[in-house]
Amino acid sequence: MLTVGLTHFLILSAILFAIGLFGVITQRNVIKVIMCLEIMLNAVNIALIAFSQSVAPVSLTGQIFAIFVMVVAAAEVAVGIAIIFSIYRNHESIDMEKFNILKW
């Protein structure tokens, strides 16, 4: 009988993280990039909870930490979307490749 252990959670987390990273690097649409960023954060959350479960099953510290991450992520998305709106008003675009004025 197959039991779901720490390794499986970590593999899931790694896969999600890789997918998110791939999205962040490759997508041109800023909204998609932010979505991929959320996937990466949640991949980390899975890893956190999995470790918490396996290292200290009684304590809830890890899980509470994951909640915190979600809260911060929500705030971050709010700020991020606001910035994107602002950029969009100036550039008329949400294409990442056009956001390149911060350079030499």
Binding site: V24, V33, M96, E97, F99, N100, K103, W104
Partner: peptide, 8 residues
């Protein structure tokens, strides 16, 4: 040249 402004 490496500092091309492309965040990605």
């Amino acid at each position: 040249k490496l500092q091309n402004g492309q965040t990605q």
